[in-house]
Amino acid sequence: MIRKNDLSEVLFAFVIIAFGLFLVYSGIDLSIGKMSRIGPGFLPLCLGVIITVLGIGILFERQEKHLDIPPNIRGLALITLAIGAFAALVETTGLFPATAALVILTALANHERIRPLTLLGTIIGLCVVGYLLFVAALQLPFKPISPDLISWFTGTN
């Protein structure tokens, strides 16, 4: 366990160093400019150097104690899917289907059991709140259900 953590710390330090080097490269690419007109690449370059040095420092730093909870890959994956699905659906199929997808996927991420009726209640509740609050009151440009989806469903053109 402790070993694995050390490994991930070391790997992450390398990620930091790589990120720093990437910044140095982009900084030079963006042009550094001159003293009377500093270019857009000046700050990225400076930060790149600093981050690279800090990354090397962290590589040799003694690590503190760690969380001993194993990583929650399943939760992370499902929350990612939930948010991704909402983002992908909200403008294409409308607010309601996107909300339903988000609630179902988030519920799956949780290990607590949830009754189908509670789930449905949450979906309907959020759709109603979402519509009244965000569409009717705050005028966000959502359609409750996209007209394209409706015509696809009813089979008409």
Binding site: T99, L102, T122, L126
Partner: peptide, 14 residues
Amino acid sequence: ARILYPVVIFFICI
């Protein structure tokens, strides 16, 4: 949590 988290994620997205 089973109700709170979907609600919170929903508000974060919007």
